[in-house]
Amino acid sequence: MDRHQLFDRTLVLQRRLRALKQHGTSADFLLARAADDLEERLSAVERQFEVAIDLASHTDLAAEAMQRSGKASIIIRIEEAGPFLTTRFPAIVADQEILPLGAASIDLAVSLLSLHLTNDTPGTLLQIRRALKPDGLFLGAMAGENTLTELRECLIATESEISGGVSPRVAPFADVRDVGGLLQRAGFTLPVTDIETYTVRYDNLFALMRDLRAMGVQNSLFGRSRKPLTRQFFMRAAEIYAERFSDPDGRIRATFSFIWMSGWAAHESQQKPLKPGSAKTSLADFLKEAEKD
């Protein structure tokens, strides 16, 4: 194992596959919401894309959203394991951190809720940009920093109270400004990021954890504690969660934050920022005119 890496990606894959086998798509409501948002965002893009890639979105939901938008002619799914794939779309089995795509070979790349579990997110974004033809589009969503913030706080409080120490139990998620910087570093033009935040309510902490297991997103950090947690730990964590984050009806809140990102492969037809000093009208002149109004 490489201790410089944040995630044990072998374990991430194992848990995703186990969740798919045991729970199917029963906990795909967040992915379904992201797919709906994807369709809406694509529908607002005024152009068609010949070859589109759905990268590691784990189900057909993202590909179906692209299909419904009418913006993509050919849709190819890329997944790390065959069980995630169906026969509805052409598919490639490959690691999303080592893309099997030639330079300037695709027109559209989409990724829903998987990039936050990569160890080399900058490298993956760079590979996506290189695979896009000039004026090709990347559109994706990844978990943002406020995701499961209530769960993180309660687990830290519980562990600190019981053992006097703290180990990482919820993955650190990206800040929207950092994601914008990653898009720029990868060479995307016209990069845009924004945040969609959803609150999901549960009867208690245990209901939330059942959903997280069904999604296959338990703690896969290399730095996680290997010491099994006790029933006492979870009971106390559930108490703290209920004390701090419950509504008047007794149900608890869980926050899920999606950072949406888009960027284009450079093309001469795209808007370019003006060079410094090239503006025909100065701000001072504009303000003088505004004062006259």
Rank of each mutant, 00 (worst) to 15 (best):
L126N: 03
S225V: 11
E289K: 14
A290L: 15
N119P: 09
P168I: 11
P90W: 02
R244S: 02
P134G: 12
E50S: 14
N204P: 02
R68E: 10
S278F: 00
L17H: 09
A242T: 15
D135A: 15
L148F: 14
G187P: 08
L205Y: 02
A207C: 07
L190M: 13
A265M: 07
R201M: 10
R152Y: 05
S220L: 00
T147N: 13
V176S: 12
V93A: 04
H116T: 03
I76L: 10
N119A: 13
R201S: 09
L139N: 08
F245I: 08
A171M: 10
A27E: 01
F256I: 05
A238M: 01
L221P: 06
R185H: 11
I106T: 13
A265G: 12
L212G: 04
T59Q: 08
R244M: 07
G123F: 11
R253Q: 14
F233Y: 13
A91W: 04
T87F: 09
L42R: 05
Q22I: 00
D135G: 06
I53V: 15
T193L: 01
I53S: 01
D60Q: 07
F84I: 03
R236V: 02
A81V: 09
V170Y: 02
T118H: 05
L137N: 05
F234M: 11
A290M: 14
P134V: 11
A104Q: 15
K227C: 13
L61G: 04
F138L: 15
K292V: 10
Q271A: 14
F89P: 01
L212D: 02
Y198Q: 09
I76V: 15
A65W: 06
P191M: 07
Y202Q: 10
V51Q: 07
